[in-house]
Design a protein around this nucleic acid. Structure first.
Lengths: 231, 231
DNA sequence: TGCGGCTCTATTGGATCCAATAGAGCCATG
DNA sequence: CATGGCTCTATTGGATCCAATAGAGCCGCA
């Protein structure tokens, strides 16, 4: 059973891609009719998608003349990452405060073990980057869910679609596996440290570590991958 | 010139009101056709509004059978307020870090002076509650804007529409002006304290104070006002 | 030659119509 | 009598059509 690929979702991810990879640059007008024709659908799903993208903050309304991608300079990206760090920091704090259930602890340990396995052999191969990508998302998502505060996920919803700002947007240099090894291992170690703080019930520490963890994403980035899939 | 009152916006605020005041309760189905007929418009603006409300987190999709208001129990409200506190705390931190411009300092001082004026006579009258309402929003909004991080406002966008969670949702007891005097004065003093920390450049302190300021909203609430106006 | 107003058109927002779909109820059967 | 499948219908999602509107360009006048 492949994806029947509902037109609406299709348009949404298509536009996200185009904005992310620069097919549509800030300043370019996005009008409904040309976009609809280009994608081979009616204006309706395009309208829906543009409204959604506006809510996500990826585009801004251009008066009555359509939309345009939001300009994302370095400061804006840093700001988005900062917001993510603060929100995920809150999640970590909450989890440390309330303590992990047995099931959550087991899940988290299993996820971290995946990470251990990636680095166990001392170097990375191509497929490991994909593995880390999934491991990373799993770790972050689990903490947010375990926080028991759905508003955190809601508030993150906007930022998670911004390029570079999502935990799913890894800063990966596919040509420098050696350098990435240390970079990603550091991230993994930080995950472990957060986990330790949570187990110790040290909420302040857990929050601070999580914030710092997000902050490093601001510094080291050269390439990125977008999260295409919907939640 | 009054508001021509565009149908779309009209429907959006109408639905918000109905959800806020309990006309539509969690569990009730919100279908497009009956809603459209009840409001005297076509299904289209209703559809748009429901999508928007879903993004705001006020309603959840009920499979293919319409929407229903999101259940907001005490824990959910507390969670939303917690998120707001953390985000506004970040804003305060940023402002303290970068320092206020002369214009911002003057604006902020002017806003706080409004607050001073409200409490100067030692008691409150009815119209003062409205005055505080506006003063409070002005203070919070200015800090968020001055933070220079648009992502904060974006992330707050969702929470600000949730009843009880917005800075605009004051906990006011209109029959106990005496009690409210102390309650609101405390909030005002906290604003002053945040301002002082910002002037001193004490980012940690500014953030902590702002978080605590939000937290008190969790405890003291008996009635609330919704923010009807759009940004 | 510059500015203001007017018209004209491109484009969005809303209404109506049509198709796809999933939920509910019913019937048959084990 | 319970359970599984089938059909039927209620309801959303998409397409097309129509109206309102605001931006742009042009023309006239100072």
């Amino acid at each position: 059973m492949e994806k029947p690929a509902k037109p609406g979702q299709q348009v949404l991810v298509a536009l996200r891609r185009m904005i992310a990879d620069g097919t549509i640059k800030p300043g370019d007008r996005i009008a409904e009719i040309p976009t609809a024709e280009a994608l081979g659908v009616s204006r309706m799903p395009v309208r829906t998608a543009l409204r959604a993208l506006e809510h996500e903050g990826l585009v801004v309304k251009l008066g009555a003349r359509g939309y345009t991608p939001r300009t994302m300079d370095a400061a804006a990206i840093a700001g988005a990452i900062e917001v993510r760090g603060v929100l995920e920091g809150l999640a970590a704090r909450r989890v440390a405060d309330r303590g992990l259930t047995l099931a959550e602890a087991a899940d988290l340990e299993a996820i971290l073990a995946e990470g251990d396995a990636l680095f166990a052999k001392g170097h990375l191969v191509d497929s490991d980057l994909d593995g880390f990508y999934r491991y990373n998302i799993a770790f972050h998502d689990l903490l947010i869910v375990a926080s028991g505060n759905p508003s955190i996920a809601l508030a993150l919803g906007r930022n998670n679609h911004l390029p570079f700002a999502s935990a799913a947007a890894l800063a990966l240099d596919w040509d420098d596996l050696e350098g990435e090894y240390h970079h990603l291992l550091k991230a993994h170690d930080e995950h472990r440290a957060v986990f330790a703080a949570i187990r110790a019930g040290d909420a302040d520490q857990a929050e601070q570590l999580m914030r710092d963890h997000a902050a490093v994403a601001i510094a080291n980035r050269r390439a990125f991958r977008m999260l295409d899939a919907e939640r």
